[in-house]
Design a protein around this nucleic acid. Structure first.
Length: 594
RNA sequence: GGUCCGUUAGCUCAGCUGGAUAGAGCAACUGCCUUCUAAGCAGUAGGUCCCAGGUUCGAAUCCUGGACGGAUCACCA
């Protein structure tokens, strides 16, 4: 691929050599995109170059511009505005690039380099259904996996399922007490919804009991600890740890319901995993590891028998790793999980954890502990932290019933996209199945794009009252541009036009689009380096918008010149490919027709 | 209180490895469908880039201090 920027740098250097007999170091050469009100595509900032040219920025720019225009074939023209040298790259160069893109099979995608990484995302608790926050997590993790793949990595997508602990016991206990044998089959409820229902019932009963105790004169704090239903749940957890057959059976049954429900939701979301890890399988390995650390003096035991790590030297505090009764905490499990993963996949060079920013401290500590335990790979572990999704009413709280359910939201998106599509009369010639498929692609595209276009580190607002847009900087807008281009390409096929790059000149709007799509590989690289689908999302939007300007201005099939027509088809197909590839990196499908 | 993150148009967000007059979308207003799909295009209007210093030829961007919002510092997960 022809590297314009590298080429400009090289020629600027030789310009300085021959004009001023001066050596320029790379860091002085600042090339940036030309602002759209000026002619050109690349701009050399001449302010830092006075020392070498012995001229003011304006004169430097003039001299360098003149040299490049006269001495090189790839700079066709230039203009100077206040010390900025705007370069017009010859159409011949752009057409050469177009030719290369045209011939490249998967433009923007780096073939496997042999590097192997693991990406964790989703990782829900098994006591309640997935909600909007999980959607951001899943879409983010899945997209980052795709982006890393496109950057040449072999990616293992995994999740850790928090299938044990007091939370699931609460649902189990409430079901035992009040469920009257209700099952997903008998109730018609999705398994995760059913289990979540009993989690809510537990919480309700628990609060009632607290209030009752407080009324009878028990201090609130004591009541919170002594409410009979909570005590019972704790006893149940103990029974589970001792593998009491009845409790264990119920646990397996109810988790099974949840997994069935989750599987359905993941399918709708369009995400998947290469391997699942279960806490119930990893916590004992973590425990063994902690005991080893204790023996080797890396950890220490307090008088009451609890095991800790001292991180004061690192500027943190002490951290508990095993309770005094020997049971493990969250951290212990995560230690076990991490080690198990490196045993399963010895070749991975990095582990990426897609987890909300409320756990930043946790992961900082986790990586430190793994390092202290002697695992050299700990240093390459990365917490892909993202901000919460807020509602207009504030934070989502499952206990207060202010969560936006993932299944419900996706269903609403499908309904919205059906309504809008039907209103616009866009489904003439679609049979029922095709129409349903389109509603699904558009609804999901709108939702995914909405959640992914925002920089992951930022918290974001979601207003359930206002449905997600289908116009402007949205998934459906980009999908629409793709569908329109595909219609053009189909028509060209029918007319027997062979797409090819065989012209001398470009229309201004064509050049603008080419300038943009030529940077696609850089954008993929940038997105991979920053773990940010938002980079891709906003880039693809720019591409779509730039193509639309061309589309509005240039009538393709009214073109008499055969090679110009052939070029416009090839060019349009390239843009469609970039859009499709880019959207795939976001986990979004693009329709052929809409 | 310590640590980390955020703050850009009425709203939602780009831009942040320092560069030109700070950009999009939504909402408002004005044009453009006899043409390859108007979920579109062109335009108008909208700014104390949280504040104050500093570095620099040049700061939304870097540094220091502060304000506001959030997260976190559990024998919770």
């Amino acid at each position: 691929m022809f590297q314009i920027e590298a080429h400009i740098i090289k020629e600027v250097k030789s310009a300085f050599k021959s004009l001023f007999d001066a050596e320029l170091s790379d860091d002085l050469i600042n090339i940036q995109p030309t602002r759209k009100e000026f002619e050109g595509s690349h701009t050399l900032v001449c302010f830092p170059l006075g020392k070498q040219s012995k001229l003011n920025p304006q004169a430097t720019a003039e001299a360098v511009g003149k040299y490049l225009k006269e001495e090189t074939a790839f700079v066709a023209d230039f203009n100077v505005v206040k010390g900025f040298l705007n370069l017009v790259i010859a159409d011949k160069v752009w057409l050469e690039i177009a030719e290369q893109i045209h011939k490249t099979n998967q433009f923007g995608v780096t073939p496997p380099t042999g590097r192997e990484v693991m990406v964790e995302y989703s990782s829900p608790n098994t006591n309640k259904p997935l909600h909007l926050g999980h959607l951001r997590n899943n879409f983010l993790g899945y997209s980052v996996s795709k982006i890393l793949e496109a950057a040449g990595n072999k990616v293992h997508k995994v999740q850790i399922i928090n299938d044990r602990g007091i939370h699931i016991c609460k649902s189990m206990l409430a079901w035992q007490k009040f469920g009257e044998g209700e099952t997903p089959e008998s109730s018609g409820l999705k398994g995760d919804k059913l289990v979540g229902k009993y989690y809510v019932i537990f919480d309700k009963k628990y609060k009632e009991q607290i209030n009752e105790l407080v009324k009878q004169g028990t201090p609130k704090e004591t009541a919170e600890k002594e409410a009979p239903i909570l005590v019972e749940a704790q006893q149940m957890l103990l029974k589970w740890e001792n593998k009491d057959p009845e409790v264990y059976n119920l646990w397996e049954t109810m988790n099974g319901w949840v997994y069935d429900g989750f599987a359905e939701t993941y399918k709708t979301m369009g995400v998947d995993f290469d391997k699942l890890y279960y806490e119930s399988n990893t916590f004992s390995l973590g425990k063994d590891e902690v005991l080893r650390g204790l023996e080797e003096g890396i950890l220490f035991k307090k008088e009451d028998g609890s095991v800790w790590i001292d991180l004061k030297e690192e500027g943190l505090d002490e951290k508990l790793l095993l309770r005094k009764d020997g049971t493990s905490v969250y951290m212990t499990q995560d230690i076990g999980t991490a080690i198990l993963r490196y045993q399963d996949f010895p070749k991975i060079e990095q582990q990426i954890y897609t987890v909300g920013n409320e756990q930043e401290y946790h992961f900082k500590v986790l990586f430190m502990i793994l390092d202290k335990l002697g695992y050299s790979w700990a240093k390459s572990c990365y917490h892909l932290s993202y901000g919460m999704v807020d509602l207009p009413t504030g934070k989502m709280k499952s206990r207060e019933g202010t969560v936006v359910d993932a299944d419900d939201l996706m269903e609403e998106m499908f309904a919205t996209s059906k309504r809008r599509t039907d209103e616009l009369g866009k489904i003439d010639g679609f049979d029922k199945e095709e129409a349903e498929e389109l509603y699904r692609q558009l609804g999901l595209g709108a939702l995914k794009y909405y959640l992914l276009k925002v920089d992951p580190v930022k918290r974001m607002m979601f207003n359930p009252e206002e449905s997600i847009d289908f116009q402007g900087n949205t998934g459906p807008f980009i999908q629409y541009v793709h569908a329109r281009i595909r219609a053009i390409v189909r028509k060209a096929e029918q007319l027997g036009v062979t797409p090819e790059v065989n012209v001398e000149q470009l229309a201004a709007t064509e050049r603008d689009v080419l300038v943009l799509i030529s940077t696609f590989p850089d954008k993929v690289k940038e997105a991979a380096e920053t773990y940010s689908p938002a980079v891709i999302a906003n880039y693809i939007y720019d591409v779509a918008k730039a193509y639309n300007r061309f589309y509005a201005e240039v009538s393709i099939f009214n073109e008499d010149d055969e090679s110009a027509l052939a070029f416009r088809i090839a060019f349009s197909a390239m843009v469609a490919n970039v859009i499709k590839t880019g959207m795939e990196l976001l986990g979004i499908e693009v329709p052929e027709k809409m």
